[in-house]
Nucleic acid binder design. Structure first.
Ligand SMILES: [Mn+2]
Ligand SMILES: [Mn+2]
Ligand SMILES: [Mn+2]
Ligand SMILES: [Mn+2]
Lengths: 219, 219
DNA sequence: ATAATTTGTTAGATTAACTAAACTTAATAT
DNA sequence: ATATTAAGTTTAGTTAATCTAACAAATTAT
C-alpha cells in the first residue's frame, strides 16, 4: 500500500504535527534529510493518495486516515523497541536504529505476538506511549523536572526525546525510568538542579537535561 | 550496498546453484516471479558489481564474493526462523514469510544477539543448515526416507523443502523433527511406506512425502 | 538441412525516489 | 512601497526496478 519511504514520511509528519498540527515542507525535508523538491513531490503523491491535507504554498497536515496509518507505524516501532530491550537485552540507546527498519515489516501476527509476549505494554523503553491497535494514543502530559522546587520529589517516567547522546548521558549516571528523584537545590546562576536518587546523591543536571526529564510528582 | 531486491536475487541464485552450480535466467525469473527481461537486466547489473559470473547466452553462477554474500543473507533468514519458532512460539509453517522480510535488516548486533540467545544453532526449524558468520555452510548429506527398507529405523532430521502445504501436512500427523520412524512395510503398487512413530502407529506416506523427509539411520 | 520452439537480449516505457537549477510566491526588512 | 530573503514549486534529468514488444541465438524436431 505504501512504501517504506512513504511510511517514513508519514511518521515524520506524525511527530512534526504532534504539537502544532501543521508543518511546512522545509522542516519535513530537513528531518528526513532529503532536498526540498524531493519532499515536495512526495507530499503531492501522499496528498493524491489521501494521507495528507495539502494546498500549494500552505503548511500541511495528516488526514485522519494518514494520522491513523502513521500511529500504527509508530506502534510497530515502539513495540519493537520494547521487545528489543525487554526480551533481547539491548540497551535503550541501541534500539532505535533497528526499530527504524523493523517498523516496516508487514506482518500482523509478528507484531501481535510481540505485543502479547510483552504483556501489552503502553510505553516504549523511553517512556513514549505506544498507540493501540486502532492507532489511538493516550498522550500523558508529563512535567519536565525543571518545573519542580527544592525539597520536592518526582519519579522519572519518560524522556522528552531519545537522542543517543542523551541516553548515554543517562546511562553514565545510572538514571533509569522509574527512578525517584529528590530536588536538593537549584542554582540561580544557570538554573541547573542538584538532585539525589538511588546511589547518586547530589548529581548536578543542567537546565537542558532537566527539561528533557519528564516526571510525575511523588506524594 | 545491495537493495533488498538484489539480495533476493542473490539468495535465489544461491539456492538454484546449490546442486548444479549453474542456472539459466529463465529459471531465476520463474522463482522470483518476474519477467525474463527484468531478471536479465538485474543479472547484468549484479555481474557489473561482481556478484555474478555471466556471459551472454550462457548459464550463470555466483562469484565467490556473491556466494558468501548470499550465504550471509540465508544465515539471517534461518536465524530469524529459528528465533521466531524457539523464542516467539510461532509454528514452523508461519515463519518463512516473516523471515523473508527480516533477512534484509541491516544490523550486525541484532542478528548476533539472536544467534547468542539461541545458543548458536546450526540448523533452522526445518532442519536446513545455518551458514556461519563467514558464510560457510556444512552441507549434511541426509538420505530421504524413501531409500530405507522395512524393519529399518531412522530419525527425521530435515526436510527437502518447506512449503507451507507440506508443513501443514506434517502438523496434522504430529510429525516433528527428531521423530524416530520405523518402516513397517512398503507398498509395491505406489511405493508408499507404512511407518510408525510416537503415538502414530501405521501411518501411510506417499512416495512424494517419503522423498521429502530427510533422515538419519538409527543403529 | 530446415523449420519450429525455447531461451535470451535489446529497445522503449513506466513508476518511485531522488537531485540540481530555475522559477514563483510569500514573508520580512528597510 | 519596494527590495531582499525565505519558502515552495516546476522542470529536466538520474538510477533502480519493473513491464511489453520486437528481435536474435541456441536447441530440438522433422
Ligand atoms: Mn525510536
Ligand atoms: Mn523507518
Ligand atoms: Mn524460509
Ligand atoms: Mn527476502
Amino acid at each position: 500500500m505504501v512504501s517504506p519511504t512513504a511510511e517514513n514520511y508519514l511518521k515524520a509528519l506524525f511527530s512534526l504535527t504532534a504539537e502544532r498540527g501543521e508543518v511546512n515542507i522545509t522542516e519535513l525535508s530537513h528531518l528526513l534529510q532529503v532536498k526540498l523538491p524531493t519532499a515536495n513531490s512526495m507530499i503531492k503523491s501522499l496528498h493524491e493518495q489521501g494521507w495528507v491535507s495539502y494546498e500549494k504554498y500552505k503548511p500541511l497536515s495528516l488526514t485522519p486516515k494518514g494520522k491513523k496509518k502513521a500511529a500504527l507505524i509508530v506502534r510497530k516501532h515502539r513495540l519493537t523497541e520494547m521487545y528489543l530491550v525487554d526480551k533481547m537485552g539491548f540497551g535503550w540507546e541501541e534500539v532505535h536504529e533497528i526499530a527504524e527498519q523493523v517498523e516496516h515489516i508487514d506482518s500482523t501476527i509478528f507484531f501481535d505476538r510481540m505485543d502479547e509476549l510483552l504483556g501489552n505494554p503502553n510505553v516504549d523503553p523511553h517512556g513514549s506511549p505506544i498507540p493501540d491497535k486502532n492507532g489511538e494514543i493516550q498522550q500523558k502530559n508529563h512535567d519536565p523536572l525543571g518545573v519542580f522546587k527544592p525539597g520536592e520529589k518526582a519519579k522519572l517516567v519518560a524522556l522528552a526525546h531519545s537522542s543517543s547522546d542523551f541516553l548515554k548521558f543517562l546511562n553514565r549516571r545510572e538514571l533509569l525510568l522509574g527512578a525517584e528523584l529528590k530536588i536538593e537545590s537549584i542554582e540561580n546562576y544557570d538554573n541547573s538542579m542538584v538532585v539525589s536518587y538511588e546511589n547518586h546523591p547530589f548529581e548536578t543536571f543542567s537546565k537542558v537535561v532537566c527539561d528533557a526529564l519528564l516526571v510525575e510528582r511523588l506524594v
